[in-house]
């Protein structure tokens, strides 16, 4: 359990390596999107297969980013190119929060929870992780994003109410996921990046809800990793303040700088370039990039991961090269 050891601050026997990527897991398992997100056994087997083929240090149960928006009331359609898409975003002004949330009434959410249970029974040497997006990103995915963003200025109270409600939904989903056997919760938050909103807006509309969610996850016995895409440099201390055990940074960020700012107070996670190196490079380039990450941010208090999700079409040999580099790295 090198991943849990590292997240808990213990000395691990090797550097943990993790990947996320439902599209790649689906491609490797050769199953249709519809089955991946509606059938717990298909999702579990696809992600177990992804773990077995790569040798990574977790099984992450994830079909796509949309089960929680679906729980909130969004409808989904399938694109032949990218799989599930939100068919219709809701209007935040007209949104009536459901009085009761039943995660099992939404097939994709029920499939994730069922798959966690199957995976937890199937693996003993690696933890089971679950992935869903942060409150702010979930809000912008579920509601008309342009209108929701403008509420920051026009009606911040309405946006805060929605974020409060969404955070509660995510806390409830986390509780179910942990009860079913997930021990790691990976929370991507691409819309909180400084490529998108200011540090002031991050503090106002993202940070409080992340802190609340992560606090809940830890009280329930889970271990939270927070991922943000793009530029996050000036909010690294605030990201750490959320209480996340691991901070996963985009490949645009310099891990050595993050370590200099944050010290060893937090586990750094990252940040091999998933497109130029993992998808388009060869095993030699992957090994070189992996060693560079380990040497700038590790080897202790460090998890090796791509800087974002691993795209479909990434050669499996490259992922294996990344895993073997970490396992063979001599401290």
């Amino acid at each position: 359990m090198v991943l849990l050891d590292t997240l808990k601050g213990r000395v691990a026997s090797s550097i943990p390596v993790i990947f996320t990527g439902a599209g790649l897991a689906r491609e490797l398992a050769d199953v249709p999107w519809e089955a991946l997100r509606s059938d717990a056994s298909v999702l579990a087997e696809a992600q177990l297969n992804f773990q077995r083929q790569t040798g990574m240090d977790w099984v992450t149960v994830y079909s796509d980013a949309l089960p929680i928006p679906e729980v909130l009331g969004c409808t989904i359609r399938f694109s032949p190119v990218s799989g599930p898409l939100i068919d219709r975003q809701m209007s935040l002004q007209d949104f009536k929060p459901p009085s009761e949330i039943d995660y099992y009434a939404t097939r994709s959410a029920a499939a994730m929870l069922g798959a966690i249970e199957i995976c937890a029974r199937a693996v003993r040497d690696v933890p089971v992780g679950v992935l869903f997006e942060a409150p702010f990103t979930t809000a912008l995915r579920s509601f008309d994003a342009t209108a929701a963003i403008k509420l920051m200025f026009k009606n911040p109270g309405l946006l805060r109410s929605a974020l409060d409600f969404i955070t509660g939904v995510l806390e409830g989903f986390s509780a179910e996921a942990i009860r079913k056997g997930a021990s790691v919760v990976h929370i991507p938050d691409p819309f909180s990046s400084l490529d998108f909103i200011s540090a002031r807006h991050f503090e106002e509309f993202s940070h409080p809800y992340l802190t609340r969610l992560i606090g809940s996850i830890h009280r329930m016995g889970g271990h939270a990793i927070l991922h943000m895409c793009g530029n996050t440099e000036s909010i690294w201390p605030k990201m750490a303040e959320t209480g996340a055990l691991g901070l996963s940074l985009d490949q645009k960020m310099v891990l050595g700088n993050a370590r200099a700012v944050l010290g060893k107070s937090v586990v750094l996670v990252g940040n091999v370039d998933p497109i130029h190196v993992l998808m388009m490079g060869d095993a030699t380039a992957v090994r070189r990039a992996a060693v560079s990450c380990i040497e700038t941010a590790g080897p202790d208090r460090f998890v090796l991961m791509p800087g974002c999700g691993t795209p479909p079409g990434t050669p499996i040999e490259n992922l294996r090269a990344m895993v073997s580099t970490a396992k063979e790295y001599v401290v």
Binding site: I149, K150, M152, F153, F196, I197, H201
Partner: peptide, 8 residues
């Protein structure tokens, strides 16, 4: 300025 400001 960031995306929200530009949209406004």
């Amino acid at each position: 300025y960031f995306v929200p400001e530009v949209l406004m």
